[in-house]
Write a protein that binds this DNA or RNA. Structure first.
Lengths: 340, 340
DNA sequence: TATGCATACCAAAGCGCTTTGGGTGTCTCG
DNA sequence: CGAGACACCCAAAGCGCTTTGGTATGCATA
């Protein structure tokens, strides 16, 4: 059933039917009702492509999901972010257009998307420090919002980010206050902006308290379970091992816990851990009692905000860039205690 | 830059340029080369919507991601499945169209997608037993492939599934052979087809060995970490507690391990665990040595196969339905041992 | 009676592409 | 030398919608 069929059936022109369905005033309420009823009865929905061609809008937002080319790992926070964004999209009649691509040739994909005109805007995932994608998208004139930021000069594009530096500074201070002096950092890949900022927070706290950090206790890689496990073992084998760990992801923290268990060390007594918690739906940091002391910020909520942001930009292309810096809670669990 | 601009620039008709780019024989190789070079130089890509309108194909596949309406949980295996499917899509010039939707009104979404004509085919995620979506899609005439199966009558649609019954039967037998007699089952939501089959395998093994199962040791819910944790505690508090657990997801197994740790029980000695392992990229079952004894099957590979299957159906609509039943490995790790 | 102005509708162009149904020039062969 | 055959190219229709630029009708006003 297409517009022509429907208008033939109703004995009206396509113009009138289209206007009736799209809420234009040039059609009597009686006719509009008749058209709407017929459309519902025949289960008519305008063809997306045709509508897109005619209006120049696709009503869909592109997400380019980078897959680590080195390790073939897809970021686990992605599922929850998408869930949040998807909520907003369906509320606004938008669709989500997904491309998974090795993180080595993301630029090509953005270029493709832009010239194929298949989306009205895009969300940038996992920005690096000084990510070239941002300039590219600005040049292409494609509306976009970034989940995270990208180094300096973050004034002239739209982003939603967690205050990563602050979160990790607070967490580090919390540990220092408990008497810890050797604190290991299991960070994400520090080419990524969020990880660089977390590192900064960690270093800032050290500096402010007159402590020196030990590069041998600072790790940076993709945040898998195994990374947490292996890094903790390595740190513990250091001649002067840490008494506390600051970990960038709850997934790696699970690996860390496994390592401690294997070594017979008790979490919160022998070794303290603070983790960052993205509030993944299937991997909550405890239901009522938190498992880990954690800096907490919902990635799903970030997805919602980010999605709303692109939609705003699309609706209002001339408005100034929007920024949203989310503060994270510091929830105290049983994984931290005074330094032994 | 659109077709008209490009053909004007080249002094050729749109027809010729279109044919040159799409590999039709009616154009000289010399001209084709000239056209291709110009297209590349001007970064020309045909507009997706226009192409779709003209050809009747969208070159995109729809994925409808159900979110548990009760618990707002998005299935963690989803990210890896998508990664696998995305690989195949980009190799074949297809895109992925995503809709996240509460699992209560998925049907509406499929109906929408079909009448809006925004995709060439869809993948069905997380089929229930006797899932109404399958009949719906057949009625709508939309090509589709199911990740999993849906109860009886699985001959007349396309699916990729793991042999869940067999996997869990083997795992149960393995535990029985080790002397375990009270084996708890931490299953997924048994409205889902995969979980029902796993339950069946578990029961079959019990029956074949003349053992009776205890409903008090059988759990069914969404497979979160907390579910694993809470269920293990509950099972251990049973007057006659189990000596082994069979767990449907590595995520829940992590929760299970946490519960054991809390109770001071040693995995593989006091309590045995066999888990199902979807080979999630960020949550591998150990890097070299497996953490858990596990029935293993790559969900990413399933994504690849499933994607290829829809593409095949689209290319060849009259071919008979394809089925692919993947057998899972049983890898032995340190989480199992003789019954105490 | 003529004019103005809403109101309610419509025909047709246009979005950017593919594809049908030719057309023209060159070559080959009887 | 004329007729097919072939290679190469083109104009225009059509995909399903929105939107521009109307027209016809009815009614109040001057």
């Amino acid at each position: 059933m297409n517009l022509k069929d429907l208008s033939d059936y109703l004995g009206l022109s396509q113009t009138t039917v289209s206007r009736a369905l799209n809420g234009y005033p040039e059609v009597s309420e009686k006719t509009r009702k008749r058209v709407q009823d017929a459309a519902a009865a025949h289960n008519y929905r305008p063809n997306t492509r045709a509508k897109g061609l005619a209006t120049g809008r696709t009503m869909s937002i592109g997400h380019v999901i980078p897959i680590s080319a080195r390790h073939e790992i897809v970021n686990p926070i992605f599922a929850d972010f998408i869930a949040g964004a998807g909520e907003i999209y369906s509320k606004n009649g938008y669709d989500m257009h997904l491309t998974v691509v090795p993180d080595t040739d993301e630029a090509r994909v953005y270029r493709d998307i832009a010239s194929k005109g298949s989306v009205d805007g895009v969300i940038v995932h996992g920005p690096l420090q000084n990510d070239p994608r941002i300039k590219l998208l600005q040049d292409l004139g494609l509306p976009f919002a970034v989940h995270g930021r990208s180094g300096r000069g973050d004034e002239d594009y739209n982003w939603v980010d967690v205050n990563n530096a602050r979160a990790f500074e607070r967490a580090t201070n919390f540990l220092i206050d408990l008497g810890h002096r050797r604190i290991a950092l299991l960070n994400g890949n520090e080419k990524m902006d969020f990880a660089a900022r977390r590192r900064l927070g960690y270093l800032t706290a050290h500096g402010a308290r007159g402590l020196t950090h030990d590069p041998a206790l600072m790790f940076s890689d993709e945040m898998t379970e195994h990374y947490g496990y292996a890094s903790v073992l390595r740190a513990l084998d250091h001649p002067s091992p840490p008494t506390a760990f600051l970990i960038s992801s709850i997934i790696s923290s699970i690996g860390a816990r496994r390592a401690l268990e294997e070594r017979g060390l008790q979490l919160g007594r022998d070794i303290s851990i603070i983790t960052h918690d993205d509030e993944l739906s299937y991997l909550k940091n405890g239901e009522d009692l938190p498992i880990f002391t954690a800096t907490r910020s919902s990635v799903r909520e970030a997805g919602r905000i980010c999605a709303q942001m692109v939609l705003d930009v699309i609706a209002n292309p001339t408005s100034p860039p929007q920024h949203r810096l989310l503060e994270s809670d510091l929830t105290v669990g049983n994984s931290t205690g005074p330094a032994p």
